[in-house]
């Protein structure tokens, strides 16, 4: 009964975090919420008696994907800055 309550809470938090990870306007905040979502999914796998899947989810789904998303965000920002700089040079010339 208590564990059922725990599962329900877990499902509610999972749904909320999944929704906001997709709809948040600021990309960096979206990534933070996605990482929180990954940790919670790992907990959900634990509740489903699958600790091995939970390990993969925590390490890959939350850690590695989070780091990759962050790295691609900063690469995106660099590319934008370079494009703006080259546009400015074009205006001058």
């Amino acid at each position: 009964m208590i564990l059922l309550g725990l599962d329900l809470l877990l499902v509610i938090v999972l749904l909320i975090s999944a929704w906001f990870a997709l709809t948040t306007a600021d990309l960096l905040h979206g990534v933070v919420i996605f990482i929180a979502f990954g940790l919670l999914v790992a907990l959900a796998w634990v509740r489903l008696q699958a600790p091995d899947v939970a390990m993969a989810e925590a390490a890959v789904g939350s850690g590695l994907t989070g780091a990759l998303l962050l790295s691609s965000l900063s690469a995106m920002r660099r590319a934008q800055a370079r494009a703006e700089a080259s546009k400015k040079e074009g205006d001058v010339g």
Binding site: L28, S71, S74, Q80, A81, E84
Partner: peptide, 10 residues
């Protein structure tokens, strides 16, 4: 590390 870079540039 990366969040800083995200806000610093631009």
């Amino acid at each position: 590390r990366y969040g800083q870079a995200w806000y610093k540039q631009g």
